[in-house]
Design a protein around this nucleic acid. Sequence first.
DNA 1: ATCCTTAGTAATAATAATTCTCGTTTAGAT
DNA 2: ATCTAAACGAGAATTATTATTACTAAGGAT
Lengths: 146, 146
Amino acid sequence: MKLSVKTITERFRESGRKVTPQRVAVFEVLCERGGHPTVDQIYQEVRKRFPMISLNTVYQIMEALVEMKIVSPVSHGQEAARYETDSAPHHHAICVLCKRIVDVFDPALGRVRPPRAVKDRFQVLGHRVEFFGYCADCQASRQPAH
Amino acid sequence: MKLSVKTITERFRESGRKVTPQRVAVFEVLCERGGHPTVDQIYQEVRKRFPMISLNTVYQIMEALVEMKIVSPVSHGQEAARYETDSAPHHHAICVLCKRIVDVFDPALGRVRPPRAVKDRFQVLGHRVEFFGYCADCQASRQPAH
DNA sequence: ATCCTTAGTAATAATAATTCTCGTTTAGAT
DNA sequence: ATCTAAACGAGAATTATTATTACTAAGGAT
């Protein structure tokens, strides 16, 4: 279920936030480019339309979008934070070389349950399964692709 | 299987690395304290024995220990990197408030298998299951504990 | 349509984690 | 004991992120 620009303006209003062209532009970039971009990648793209926008503003917009549950942070290791637009629940496969993240949709992974010991000590909100290895491109070369 | 100081000196030599008192001290701290410390926590502890050691050196030693597969980085989100001494394969439960990491040993989680789509596109090295939620301490307060 | 409050923006500065540079020291081989 | 590459330490540099603040603009009330 992809959010349209029309929907996003409503979502901003519903959450008591103002609808600014910068926010719409960031949202459009997220939809158009898809994937799991870093803040800086989003910034570079938005800058083509808003040359004056500051990196800080992009950070703030991303924070708002996370609060509104329109995007989710998906960061790994000490890499820069990445974001993905929320959709169906899914998991990730991560290339340890080029850091590419591929979405994994598999109902079986959603059925993973925490063991008793965890349920006793944690109020579990959810879980995430991450597969790691070499993506097709990096397999060939054993060097980070692109 | 806990590595002794005797064993670690051998491991350093085997890998063609010098055995320095700083390296042994870092290793000792990791064993004694256990858990999932950040680089700075390790640094603060080692400093009690080596007041002159630099943070940079701790970073370098951690890098060497990772290469030697004696410790593993376990970082989440944009938090500082954390390390754990390698032992049996296990997974994690992470408190979203205080960032505490609890080891989860459950053979069932090791049997999680990647779906066909992933196997086709990735050379899968392994996987990790992370449960996230509120730990017992934070549940009570809804504030990060300690 | 205008005023007013509040929130958003952008520039700047600050902070935190990590990496780099380079001169000095030291472990381990000869 | 000497030599040399590796490791160390100090501090600077980088990178990602957050905080501060003055200015501007949006949206509701009038």
